[in-house]
């Protein structure tokens, strides 16, 4: 349990951290970064909340089992895109969107950064981002919960 100042500052900065992390995830195929990095940024924002507001407050809002399901969904999305590559492209992990007229199918030019490019890369980035957010936060949450229970007993 932290003081009111810490809580307020954490509450204010949390949305900005989240937005920044989501930006890094979404622009993974254009700028440095990607699913892993952006996911870690968002997870660190969540951990900031956990530190500021205490484990009990967080555990009321979100259970570790929910995070586990979210993480599974992220992983399934990743491997699902790979399987779609097998179905549409003939090989596991084929980038079947690149160069087609589908979403994210554009061919990039060397000057302008167009977010509608990258083929399957943005999809995989989203999946990995979801997975990393849920996974990293789940690790910290479970550990913090275990410690707080031990101290409580």
């Amino acid at each position: 349990m932290m003081s009111k100042i810490v809580k307020t500052i954490a509450g204010i900065s949390f949305p900005f951290i989240t937005i920044y992390g989501l930006y890094v995830i979404a622009h993974g195929h254009l700028t440095p970064g990607g699913g892993f990095q952006g996911g870690a940024i968002v997870a660190s924002g969540l951990i900031l909340l956990l530190v500021a507001y205490g484990t009990d407050w967080i555990i009321e809002k979100i259970k570790e089992s929910h995070l586990s399901i979210l993480e599974s969904l992220g992983a399934l999305g990743f491997i699902g895109v790979a399987f779609l590559g097998l179905i549409f492209g003939g090989m596991f992990f084929t980038n079947f969107i690149a160069g087609t007229s589908m979403l994210f199918g554009g061919i990039p030019t060397s000057t302008a950064a167009n977010i509608n490019t990258g083929g399957t890369l943005p999809l995989m980035n989203f999946a990995v981002g979801l997975k990393v957010i849920a996974g990293l936060f789940a690790i910290v949450l479970v550990m913090a919960y275990a410690i707080s229970k031990e101290e409580g007993e």
Binding site: G28, H29, N95, A98, G105, I107, P108, A113, T117, G118
Partner: peptide, 11 residues
Amino acid sequence: QNESGANNGVT
């Protein structure tokens, strides 16, 4: 750029 359609080579 041709094969993966991404500007970011690392990604």
